[in-house]
């Protein structure tokens, strides 16, 4: 199984994704249908993540979890459903429970359902909220932690990588991150990962 990478480039499976040169990156497939997902998954050569709830034609249940993990070899599955996350983790893949941070109360309620089991991390949307939370609040989020949604610029993405394990970005943003180069703090903090 391939590991969660610090950068996940979002794709609907229809565009050619150019990996950001010099950076560890994978692909997040989202907003596509089941047939397109199967086609795209077959060509993946890096870490492959799927936003299960955004795949048309695929139910968010245990059967879908098995299909993604076993049949398609998906490394990381994002889902809003705790039971599905548990199933994915039981199959030896990384599960990320999708929690929504619209306000403090909603985030707390969303986290109440987190299984907090080994192999189940957290995807938080929208990602830039994490830049506004106190470190202690971020630390309480089950790891690995991924920022997903509205990460629009390389500057935002690098900033978020100070407190998360991975960011979901659009292809253009990923290339901007590569062009800007890895910040010095990142190379030090992450032991050179991404160099």
């Amino acid at each position: 199984m391939r590991l969660l990478t610090p950068i996940l480039v979002a794709s609907n499976g229809h565009e050619v994704i150019v990996p950001p040169p010099g950076l560890e990156s994978g692909v997040l497939l989202r907003d596509l249908d089941l047939m397109a997902l199967i086609a795209a998954a077959g060509t993946a050569s890096t870490t492959l993540a799927v936003d299960l709830d955004s795949v048309e034609g695929l139910n968010a249940d245990a059967a879908a979890a098995r299909f993604l993990a076993v049949e398609l070899g998906v490394d990381v599955v994002i889902t809003r459903r705790p039971a599905v996350a548990s199933r994915v983790a039981a199959l030896g893949r990384t599960a990320l429970l999708h929690v929504f941070a619209f306000d403090s109360t909603g985030l707390a309620r969303s986290l109440e359902g987190h299984p907090r089991e080994p192999g189940i991390g957290t995807v938080l949307s929208p990602g830039p909220v994490l830049d506004h939370l106190p470190p202690a609040e971020v630390e309480r989020l089950p790891r690995p932690l991924v920022a997903y949604g509205f990460v629009e610029t390389a500057e935002q993405a690098w900033s978020l990588l100070r407190c998360v394990d991975s960011v979901v970005v659009r292809p253009g943003c990923a290339l901007d991150m590569a062009r800007d180069g890895t910040p010095g703090w990142y190379a030090l903090d992450k032991g050179g990962r991404g160099d």
Binding site: F102, S125, Y148, G149, E152
Partner: peptide
């Protein structure tokens, strides 16, 4: 309420 999830 307009909920900001992601750009897509």
């Amino acid at each position: 309420r307009l909920l900001l999830v992601r750009r897509g």
